[in-house]
Design a protein around this nucleic acid. Structure first.
Lengths: 124, 124
DNA sequence: ATTTACAGATTACACCTGTAATCAAACTTG
DNA sequence: CAAGTTTGATTACAGGTGTAATCTGTAAAT
């Protein structure tokens, strides 16, 4: 898969918020969370284009950027990779390990149960 | 937390297999999976020491390396970080997302249920 | 004692990252 | 049309990464 760095990922997130989008809008979105220098963002946009993670269409003097892969797709690959690397692919181990540090809430358990019910209905 | 690179992590895994351990034994363990040049491994060991991820005691002419943090600890922090970054901390979303690509097996579901039972017993 | 071997330390080097500044082309404004 | 502005492109530069080769000190062998 295309490898994006930490900072590049943050830029990607901003693009996933809504595309196509101008560089300036990306800068604005990012600055809602923390301070980004616009030159830095432009550089990262360029690198993402070069890596094939995003594309653009010229719109007058500027560009409109769009992601080349859906957030879900990216996120799922990252998840699968981590479970594979760290838990030998066993999601149960992941959840158990996760729960030893991050205290789960009742709502988390409820979500898990809902997921299991759904899975069992679909897979009798 | 201490940041270790991908390759450094693989070396760490070899050390976690059993420590304290000599550089040569680390090389051997790594070569069971894929080819590693011993010079490269030595470099990575040095970098891990410098980062404080591992330590060593001199043993005659060579060193015996040991990890400075437990695998569980490292793995849990990585897990928590990923769930936080990609799923806003919601583990249910993580599992649901994970299941859309990696087909879960009955054994996975069984593990999840066992985990939930345990959790519910502990948290009435 | 001199040579040899081996371990870790130092050096190498290209590519990636984070963080921008500068350049150049086009667009706007006077 | 000339000057300033805006946008992406190019350049910069230090520190990290992958992948080793070379240096250096000491231990083993002759």
């Amino acid at each position: 898969m295309i490898e994006v760095s930490d900072r590049e990922f943050e830029v990607l997130e901003a693009i996933w918020e809504g595309a196509p989008v101008t560089a300036n809008e990306v800068v604005s979105r990012l600055n809602k969370k923390s301070a980004w220098h616009d030159k830095t963002v432009k550089t990262l946009l360029g690198r993402l284009v070069k890596k094939g993670a995003i594309t653009f269409q010229r719109e007058g003097r500027s560009y409109l950027y769009s992601p080349c892969l859906a957030r879900e797709e990216y996120v799922q690959k990252q998840s699968a990779g981590l479970v594979e690397r760290l838990f030998d692919g066993k999601i149960g181990d992941f959840v158990a390990g996760f729960a030893t540090t991050k205290k789960l809430k009742h709502s988390d358990i409820k979500e898990l149960k809902a997921f299991i019910d759904k899975w069992e209905k679909e897979n009798d």
